[in-house]
């Protein structure tokens, strides 16, 4: 996928990241700060960022709050519906590690227990400037993803197992030839 796209496509991806904002079980402090970014004072729409409520339209998934047994299903469902290429930003302490709730009986932990996360924005809640920093870092990761200079852990593992399978097959074929 990455190297086959034209230059204009690559530039457009960075110039028009649409976000899906999902609140797992946050106290809404981080959500208010995210929405504050959309207000005229910070105005992230000048970067082409739009808040879409629909995973099928989104590129960036912004998650707040910690994950429990109920919303892990929802989170996975939404993550699967977002088409590639996508990045995940976790905003706030609760989403990063579970925050103050990390030992509760119903809390699984941070968002990375369910889906692969690319950028963590710690804070309780983080300032809008920090959130914007996080978005910029996510865009840099997206750029690296589409240039092929960086791969996610899961994809690296998948590639490794595929390479191993391929190696085994060629070895078996050689053995049969002999």
């Amino acid at each position: 996928m990455a190297e086959a796209d034209g230059a204009l496509t690559k530039i457009s991806r960075l110039k028009s990241p649409w976000i899906l904002h999902y609140d797992c079980s946050s106290c809404n402090g981080c959500d208010i700060e995210i929405l504050a970014c959309l207000t005229p004072y910070y105005d992230i729409e000048r970067f082409g960022i739009l808040n879409k409520g629909n995973p099928k339209h989104a590129d960036v998934l912004m998650v707040t709050g910690s994950v429990n047994h109920r919303n892990k299903v929802v989170l996975k469902n939404l993550y699967d519906q977002i088409p590639d290429p996508k990045v995940v930003i976790v905003v706030g302490a609760c989403g990063s590690t579970g925050g103050v709730f990390h030992n509760c009986y119903n809390v699984l932990g941070g968002v990375d227990k369910v889906i692969p996360v690319d950028v963590y924005v710690p804070g309780c809640p983080p300032k809008p400037e920090a959130i914007i920093d996080g978005v910029v870092k996510a865009l840099e990761k997206l750029k690296a993803l589409q240039d092929g200079t960086w791969k996610r852990e899961k994809e690296k593992e998948k590639e490794k197992t595929e390479k191993d399978d391929a190696k085994e097959e060629t070895e078996e074929a050689k053995k049969e030839e002999e």
């Binding site: 204009l8 496509t9 530039i11 457009s12 110039k15 028009s16 005229p40 729409e45 000048r46 082409g48």
Partner: peptide
């Protein structure tokens, strides 16, 4: 955007939106 006292996206933004969309997975 200017009416709402903010800067707003560049004028070519819809072009970037559509080209990005064409580059996404089905």
């Amino acid at each position: 955007a200017r009416m709402q006292n903010r800067i707003g996206p560049p004028v070519l933004q819809p072009l970037y939106d559509v080209i990005k969309l064409f580059g996404k997975e089905d």
